[in-house]
Simulated scan of single mutants.
Amino acid sequence: MLRLLACFLYMGGYLLWSIPKLSSLKRLPDDLNPEKKKLLIHETPKHWARTFMALTGSEVEIQGLHHIPEGPVLFASNHEGNFDIPVLIGAIDKPFGFISKIEIKKVPILSSWMEAIDCVFIDRKNRDKAANSIAAGVDLLKNGNSLVIFPEGTRSKGGPIGRFKAGGFRLAKGSGVPIVPISIEGTADIFEKNSRLVKPARIKVIISQPIYNWQYKDKELIAIADEVRDEIVRSRDAKRIAS
């Protein structure tokens, strides 16, 4: 219970503390180097994520960071639990945004930070608006920004990895950026499998080799989704055998 309380108090307090920082970032000069600007904006979310995970007492093991290529990429990860997002923000140095459900836009301050790091909000109940959001995501990728998708569409909560939905891979098809599969294991042990309390867990993040445009451009979306899922499952199984 104490860890849960500490995590929620820290999250709320940090968001309030970050308001002046968020305001100053909005005033960054337009002629600032784009890469430097992204790094400055992502400093605060990364600091939050690493401290937030430290409060859980969890250990995060990362493998395959060298597989991340230069330039914009589409990260595609399985979705085990609520703590996947801070784990990825803290683990990966390359700045990136998320594809998120539209309901998060109602959360003050948090939604402003998500907009600052170029997250894309999707209204799954409105196909036209969802299509416009995908188009906006494609533009972000073409302009040098990286994104993360969770193609399962919902948390597995520590169960088997579900089948990947194909829609998110339109972002890769439309932009031509590399797809980087990511396996996350152990985040559900922090919260979802712990009676909604927070406890320390051992988390493994495995980053696989990228799948480049020339490898997927002629494939159907569902085939791409299945290929990425198979790679995530394969890398997880290989890690278990090696352990």
Rank of each mutant, 00 (worst) to 15 (best):
R234A: 09
K105G: 08
G97A: 05
K36Q: 14
P86A: 10
D237V: 09
P178Y: 00
T187Q: 06
A136E: 11
S156F: 00
P72C: 01
S23H: 08
D123F: 05
R155D: 03
S23K: 11
D30N: 12
G81S: 15
D118C: 09
E59W: 09
E35W: 09
V107T: 12
K217D: 09
P72D: 03
L22V: 04
E80L: 06
Q215S: 13
S111G: 02
D139P: 00
P181D: 08
C119H: 01
E192S: 11
N132Y: 10
K94A: 13
L65N: 07
L9R: 10
K193M: 12
D128C: 03
W17V: 07
L5G: 09
Y212G: 07
K36N: 12
P108W: 03
R50T: 15
S175Y: 01
I104L: 14
L32D: 05
N213D: 12
P69E: 06
S133L: 06
S195K: 14
G167P: 04
I203E: 06
E35V: 14
D84F: 04
E227F: 02
L40R: 14
R234Q: 06
D189G: 11
G144I: 04
A91E: 02
N145A: 12
G81A: 15
L140G: 03
D123A: 02
L140Q: 08
Q209G: 11
D123T: 00
V177P: 01
T51W: 10
G13M: 07
E192L: 08
K217S: 14
R236C: 08
G144P: 01
Q209L: 11
R124P: 04
I179S: 08
L88R: 00
L5K: 12
N213S: 11
F83G: 02
Y10H: 08
D93Y: 14
Y216R: 00
I207Q: 02
L141K: 03
A6T: 10
L28Q: 09
E35M: 12
E80N: 07
F96R: 08
E59Q: 15
